[in-house]
């Protein structure tokens, strides 16, 4: 059902966990199936210095969380905002059609974390 890369990220997820003094936090719940995801970012000089996630969800949800943290790590905030769910799914070598909605979670959670950072650092 899943590609080898999806399974690799599911088995060995990158950047799992929380950041104590996170600069931005994004929480999303998946309205389709009820899954939840949290992204925390640490920002330094307008770049994502660190990012960590926690996810309760299917294999695709965990794998998309994991790969999307890799995709934005070290990127500028503007670059990170460009991340789309399509890009996340493509980076994983595709997802089964029924699982495409799971990739929304990761991109949405990262965008929310960026929004959270922005709202806290208006100056």
């Amino acid at each position: 059902m899943y590609s080898d890369l999806v399974m690799d990220h599911f088995r060995n997820p990158r950047n799992v966990g929380t950041i104590e003094d996170a600069d931005g936090v994004g929480n999303v719940g998946n309205p389709v199936c009820g899954d939840v995801m949290q992204m925390m970012i640490k920002v330094k000089e307008n770049r994502i210095e660190d990012i960590k996630f926690q996810t309760m969800g299917c294999g695709a949800a965990i794998a998309t969380s994991s790969i999307s943290t890799e995709m934005v790590m070290g990127k500028t905030l503007d670059e990170a905002r460009e991340l789309s769910n399509k890009a996340v799914a493509e980076a994983l070598g595709g997802l089964p059609p029924a699982k495409m909605h799971c990739s929304n979670l990761a991109a949405d959670a990262i965008h929310l974390a960026l929004d959270d950072y922005k709202s806290k650092h208006k100056n």
Binding site: F10, R11, C33, D35, M56, C58
Partner: peptide, 25 residues
């Protein structure tokens, strides 16, 4: 606080075939 499909995939790695009533499956 955990989801069924992720349990099934993890069990599959350990050579165990099972099922779940999770929405995701």
């Amino acid at each position: 606080n955990i989801e069924g499909e992720s349990i099934l995939l993890s069990l599959d790695f350990e050579g165990v075939a099972a099922s779940s009533g999770s929405a995701c499956t």
